[in-house]
Design a protein around this nucleic acid. Structure first.
Length: 732
DNA sequence: AGTCATTCCTTTTTT
DNA sequence: AGGAATGACT
């Protein structure tokens, strides 16, 4: 037993060995929370004698689940069987397949990804003659998704405006379409599971009794549906062990609510709270930078991050002329450091706010002929040729799936156009059978009088495809996914169709081959498992650590990871923070947390990079450095523009913005005594009423304050102009 | 039905 | 700038 805890600190040990009941571990970045979770599972099995079958561990990615499982195996000699591990979505999918008889869908349902979901919304908008300009498919879909994450079914969807009314109508049709296609979307996985547990006491009892211990990682990013599932699934044993950090909550837009962390203590009054603050990842300088950034967020429980790794190097700041030079600087810097053998290529991670930013960086790498690794499974599976392959498989797996059917019925072109599709749809509807089945019937007996509505031309086009589909379906249950894929590729001569001899065509074919390689790993699994896994892959799941090359990833994808050297790029107003967060304080707070997550990924060195100009939509425009940079004390930073990097860009002679900002910063530090409106101060404004000071700085001798007014939002106020009255001072 | 040109839209973030 | 969607033409 000692080997399970002997290398842990007191708080970690306390967490691992804590008793029964609800336990909330508030874990700062790099504080070893994954370790604690793993040890806790091992401890429960080996010391407390808990049957692995009765343990459920929810992780944020499937990769994390696999890793945790294999570490538990290492820790315990006798191999534990029956552990339930995975993401909320994959665990729910498993439950739903098992309990499908209670649902309006069958157990071989397909899981629609984002793309399919929006596509379906779009189709419904068209069918319903709703103006796509006023009701953009994306925003309608996200409204539906949001409702689902809040556990609102169609009937309870609140209507306060005409817009709501329209969305409700689309929601209704959308949901019906899912049933017809025997499909669920991501949100349904959670929604249906929550519903089953809530409405069917026997199911709730079954799972609540089974899962004696439930452990949850990244608890700050759970949404209402997930929280309800947890409450019900632990309702028998009450052993809920959650780990999270409200400062690292970055999925608000997906319905996640970091306030679940606070709610937890309220809902479970006997909760034991354990705080992990000791950081084992970063140098103190990096932690101090992180703290200075996150401290500007209001309404949070302050944490003190400390390490015994020493002060470390200062955090580097670089101002590039534009985003292209930014990318060059990144690659150049990596090349130099690797050449000096101070680090290996694989030590570097480059992080950015939006996927679009990766392009220039990729080009910089390619220009030098250097390899890199791009994280982003969505992007791979989103490629047209891959989506087509998946659509073929889905159709074979579930012939009811009309979304997939209409996607590929004419791929490659086989003379089935709009007209034929409409006919097919009408006949299928009249016969009350799915189009997939109708196709097979046509193949069986093309001359049946039943099909006379079709023109000869249609029938001759449809019949061969129906035969193909039938032959694939007969292959389905007996063979591995790879065999089916190869058969489809051959039957439709996909290679010839995809690879048209151009470079682009070759690239596409290589993607197909990559997909094939991926499928080869599922040789012992059935098609259902394969399709489910690729529907629920997270970006991180594709991360392979076996090659020693730099990693490119979004800040969101960086969650939970760590790298010796981290470069955060695009630290400009409008990019980070993203301009869509400007008029919503909650969003702005999340941008800050996102930056915080990025900073705290770094172990040894951190680079903060921004540009004077950035290009968007093809045009280059001047941009300001990110407001977050102003929150970092100058003494923690080292400015690279002043020293050895004059050769990059021509900005050396010019006074950099950053230098002037630093001066401003110094000014602010010197004038601290005169600063009247410290963050946390409550003030009264003649027009907007009472507000909370978020931050304050000096500009040209005037104190500029960001204030959050209740019911009004965040406002920037110059104190010399506004008549502010301090109602509650924050001075100690 | 398929091909080509033009327009239009995009950029948050992802299970 | 680049890719997708629409529309005219063959």
């Amino acid at each position: 037993m000692t080997n399970l805890i002997s290398d842990l600190n007191i708080q970690q040990q306390q967490a691992v060995m804590s008793g029964l009941g609800p336990i909330l571990v508030l874990a700062g970045p790099g504080s070893g929370k994954t370790r604690v979770l793993t040890r806790r599972v091992a401890y429960l099995i080996s010391t407390m004698g808990v049957n692995p079958f009765q343990i459920l561990a929810v992780t944020f990615t499937n990769k994390a689940a696999r890793e945790m499982e294999s570490r538990v195996l290492e820790l315990i000699k006798n191999v534990p069987q029956g552990l339930s591990m995975g993401t909320f979505h994959s665990i729910c999918a498993r439950i739903l397949r098992r309990e499908s008889k209670y649902l309006p869908i069958q157990s071989n349902f397909v899981i629609f990804d984002q793309d399919d979901q929006v596509r379906l919304v779009k189709k419904i908008l068209k069918d319903q003659n709703i103006d796509e300009k006023r009701f953009q498919p994306n925003s309608v879909h996200s409204a539906i998704s949001k409702a689902k994450n809040d556990l609102l079914l169609v009937d309870s969807f609140p209507v306060n405006s005409y817009r709501d009314e329209v969305i409700k109508r689309v929601y209704q049709h959308y949901q019906e379409a899912l049933y017809v296609n025997n499909a669920v979307d991501f949100d349904d996985l959670l929604l249906w599971t929550a519903y089953l547990l809530e409405e069917h006491s026997d199911i709730k009892e079954k799972y609540a009794r089974r899962y004696e211990h439930v452990l949850v990682d990244e608890f700050q990013d759970t949404n209402i549906a997930q929280y309800e599932i947890l409450k019900n699934i632990t309702s028998f044993h009450h052993n809920l062990f959650v780990v999270g950090d409200a400062d690292q909550s970055i999925y608000r837009w997906r319905g996640a609510d970091y306030r679940n962390v606070i709610r937890f203590e309220k809902d479970f009054p006997d909760t034991q709270v354990i705080l992990l603050e000791h950081n084992y990842r970063s140098t103190q300088n990096i932690l101090d930078v992180a703290t200075s950034v996150i401290n500007k967020n209001p309404y949070r429980v302050p944490k003190i991050l400390f390490t015994d790794r020493g002060q470390g190097e200062k955090v580097s700041v670089y101002e590039a002329l534009n985003d292209r030079i930014e990318a060059d600087f990144i690659v150049e810097t990596i090349v130099n450091i690797v050449a000096k053998r101070k680090a290996e290529a694989g030590d570097f991670a480059i992080m950015y706010r939006t996927n679009a930013q990766s392009r220039l960086i990729e080009e910089a790498f390619l220009g030098r002929g250097l390899p890199y690794r791009l994280i982003g499974a969505q992007r791979f599976y989103g490629r047209r040729e891959i989506k087509d392959m998946i659509a073929f498989l889905r159709l074979v797996h579930n012939p009811n799936d009309e979304v997939s059917l209409s996607r590929i019925i004419n791929v490659p072109p086989r003379k089935i156009g709009n007209k034929t599709m409409i006919d097919l749809h009408t006949v299928a509807q009249n016969a009350k059978i799915p189009m997939g089945l109708l196709l097979q019937k046509i193949a069986e007996n093309p001359n049946s009088g039943f099909y006379e509505v079709f023109s000869n031309r249609s029938i001759t086009a449809l019949e061969p495809f129906g035969r193909l589909l039938s032959s694939w379906i007969s292959l389905r249950d007996a063979s591995a996914p790879l065999e089916l894929i190869d058969r489809i590729i051959t039957d439709i001569d996909f290679h010839n169709y995809i690879d048209d001899g151009t470079e682009e065509g070759l690239g596409k074919w290589e993607n197909v081959m990559e997909f094939r390689r991926l499928a080869a790993e599922f040789k012992d699994e059935d098609l259902t498992t394969f399709l489910e896994q690729i529907a629920l892959v997270s970006d991180q799941d594709t991360l392979r650590e076996d090659t020693n090359i730099p990693t490119l990833l979004t800040l969101h994808a960086a969650k939970g990871l760590e790298f010796p050297i981290v470069m955060i790029t695009g630290l400009n107003e409008g990019t980070l923070p993203h301009n869509r967060s400007f008029d919503e304080p909650e969003e702005m707070m999340e941008e800050r947390r996102l930056f915080y997550v990025g900073i705290t990924r770094a172990q040894d060195q951190l680079y903060l990079i921004y540009s004077q100009e950035r290009s968007a939509y093809g045009f280059s425009e001047p941009t300001e450095p990110s407001r977050f940079l102003y929150d970092i004390p100058a003494e923690l930073l080292s400015n690279l523009n002043r020293s050895s990097y004059h050769n990059i860009g021509q900005g050396s002679s010019k006074k950099s913005k950053w230098q002037s900002n630093n001066k401003r910063k110094d000014l602010e530090i010197n004038k601290t005594k005169e600063q009247k409106y410290l963050p946390g101060t409550m003030v009264e404004h003649p027009h907007w009423g009472e507000g909370l000071v978020l931050n304050s700085r000096f500009d040209d001798g005037d104190e500029i304050v960001d204030i959050f007014f209740k019911g009004v939002g965040q406002k920037k106020v110059a104190t010399s102009l506004a008549n502010l009255v301090i109602t509650k001072s924050n001075l100690k």
